[in-house]
């Protein structure tokens, strides 16, 4: 079973992930309408490109925006989670080997200790996010099952992956769970809020361009003081 899951199933879920997210990105861009949004996307390249990049870049930096600085706890939780969530799936040694053997794409790999620390940090970040969701009155007003689903989908691969390492006696069981939950994450990402993996960039770029092209770019230039 593991052969099938880690072979053809892995390739299939990777394909769904990549094609699905690409489709969402394409659908996003194709759905933009300069008249409806009132943003002249094709004009003012001198400031629109920097506007889009600043809008993405500043939010990728911890403390890079007033929004992050205003909410240090939320910021900490997000970044703890996302450092690992971006780096581990792509650069963990086992993942790079699997990726190379199945797709031929060769990526550098993280030192195992660093990967362990990142993974534990991500789980800590997830824990903080869960606590926020449970106890913040704001989040309690907003919570839906979809938000919990996303947290669960994210938690499982991290947790089972870490257990593979720390519970060697049940290695095969944890590994099987890890492969299943990892692939579930890949397959569901394009259809859930996990699609923000690409749509974050689209949406941020759009708002950055809106401010750079229309709302003040003329006076302010491309870089909005996020």
């Amino acid at each position: 079973m593991l052969q099938t899951l880690s072979g053809p199933c892995f390739v299939a879920s990777l394909l769904i992930f990549v094609v699905g997210l690409l489709a969402r990105a394409v659908w996003y861009v194709r759905g933009l309408d300069w008249r409806l949004e009132r943003v002249a996307y094709a004009y003012h390249r001198d400031r629109s490109v920097s506007g889009a990049l600043a809008s993405i870049g500043k939010w990728l930096l911890p403390g890079g925006t007033a929004g992050w600085r205003a909410q240090p706890v939320a910021m900490l939780a997000f970044f703890l989670l996302h450092f690992g969530a971006v780096l581990i799936p792509l650069f963990l040694l086992g993942h790079t080997v699997l990726l190379e053997e199945t797709t031929g794409i060769s990526l550098p790999s993280l030192p195992p200790n660093v990967a362990d620390i990142l993974c534990i940090a991500s789980l800590a970040g997830l824990g903080l996010l869960v606590l926020r969701r449970l106890f913040s009155p704001v989040l309690r007003q907003l919570n839906t099952w979809k938000d919990w689903l996303v947290l669960l989908l994210t938690f499982m691969p991290f947790f089972t992956g870490l257990m593979c390492k720390f519970d060697a006696n049940a290695y095969d069981t944890w590994l099987l769970l890890h492969v299943i939950t990892g692939e579930l994450f890949l397959v569901l990402a394009p259809f859930t809020k996990l699609a923000h993996i690409v749509l974050f960039f689209m949406s941020r770029a759009q708002l950055g361009m809106d401010y750079a092209i229309k709302r003040g770019g003329r006076a302010r230039g491309g870089v909005f003081p996020w």
């Binding site: 929004g67 913040s136 699609a195």
Partner: peptide, 19 residues
């Protein structure tokens, strides 16, 4: 269209807009 629908779709309900 896609901009507005995406906004509504990917809102992570993180609550950072509240304050």
């Amino acid at each position: 269209k896609s901009r507005t629908r995406t906004w509504l779709n990917i809102c992570a309900h993180c609550g950072m807009c509240a304050d």
